[in-house]
């Protein structure tokens, strides 16, 4: 874990692109996995792997439900299928196939969903997935991973392929900043501290991490010390570890590009209510659908910027 890591803004890469490249890298080391897609080789970047390993890729046409069901069957022959599609289709179009044919029998199938949240931008609400965490959390036997950067993504992909059972991995379209160096060691369920602080904890994931770190800088100038956590495993979460990390700060603001109902805010709320109640505010999509627009523009319209995080922080520290 990198405690006081500062973001390296010189390196920015979209997680989906990093995903495609890393698949090739790991694919050269191990032959046990195959990739599946439904006419989304470009959109999910799995095409990078397909081009390198055409014999280890199966295209199912635009048919996510059968792709998910077939992944279940393929896993019974000792293959580790990685299902690739946009998060909306992975978590909704094919969700019952995932639930009943994959998660229920605990088959060794991995699902990778790209295109998270309103950060998808101009394609609009049909393709902006703001529900996948809420939905996937409710399904037993499911590990949910949401990497903060490409280094964490690679660590998670290695974990995912070693782990026997269903895993849902979230990638994304927007470029993200580099958070970790090559020594990063991923521990499932534990949220890395990206910045230490004493007055308030901001728990962020995915594209919101950059805003959280930016907010911490702004608040530092105002004399407020913010701790930033990267909520990168969404299930299971090491609750004890989380409480140890947030207890002293006395209040939490969550920041996610997802519906605040059922996402990171709800996960944090569940844990705090159970073990250590304290004030909590949630930044994210406030139970409404997204819209078309540039991502940056949308984050402003939806109240999801660094400035919005600061507003919540100023308010919440008074409620401690």
């Amino acid at each position: 874990m990198n405690k006081n890591s500062l973001m390296d803004t010189s390196v920015k890469i979209s997680l989906r692109e990093a995903y495609g490249n890393t698949l090739v890298k790991i694919g050269k080391e191990r032959a046990d996995f195959i990739t599946l897609d439904a006419d989304m080789c470009g959109a999910t970047s799995v095409g990078i792997f397909r081009d390198e390993f055409p014999d280890r890729h199966i295209c199912f046409g635009i048919a996510e439900q059968n792709m998910m069901g077939a992944a279940a069957g393929l896993s019974t022959f000792g293959y580790t299928p990685i299902v690739n599609t946009m998060a909306v289709f992975a978590s909704m179009r094919a969700i019952e196939q995932f639930r009943t044919s994959v998660a229920f029998p605990n088959f060794n199938v991995k699902v990778v969903g790209s295109h998270q949240g309103i950060g998808v931008g101009n394609d609009g609400p049909t393709h902006q997935c703001i529900e996948d965490i809420s939905i996937m959390r409710a399904i037993p036997n499911t590990v949910i991973l949401s990497p903060g950067d490409d280094v964490e993504l690679e660590a998670m992909m290695r974990y995912m392929l070693d782990y026997k059972g269903p895993v849902y991995l979230r990638t994304g379209r927007l470029p993200v900043v580099r958070l970790f160096d090559g020594d990063y060691s991923f521990k499932v369920g534990r949220w890395p501290v990206l910045r230490d602080g004493t007055d308030c904890t901001v728990v962020a994931n995915s594209v919101m991490i950059e805003f959280a770190l930016e907010a911490a800088e702004i608040m530092k100038a105002e004399g407020v010390s913010i701790k930033v956590l990267n909520a990168s495993t969404l299930k299971p979460v090491d609750e004890e570890d989380f409480i140890v990390k947030v207890a002293a700060t006395g209040c939490v603001v969550t920041a996610e590009d997802h519906n605040t109902m059922g996402g990171v805010g709800s996960i944090v709320s569940d844990i705090l209510c159970k073990h250590h109640p304290m004030p909590l505010e949630k930044i994210g999509v406030q139970d409404r659908f997204g819209e078309s627009g540039d991502a940056e523009e949308l984050f402003v319209r939806f109240g999801m910027t660094a400035a919005d995080i600061c507003v919540k922080v100023r308010d919440i520290i008074l409620r401690k």
């Binding site: 199966i58 998910m68 069901g69 279940a72 069957g73 019974t76 022959f77 019952e96 196939q97 044919s101």
Partner: peptide, 13 residues
């Protein structure tokens, strides 16, 4: 519908 699809995956496997 699901078992049919799982079976297809087995045939592919």
């Amino acid at each position: 519908g699901q078992g049919f699809s799982t079976a297809l995956g087995m045939a592919l496997g």
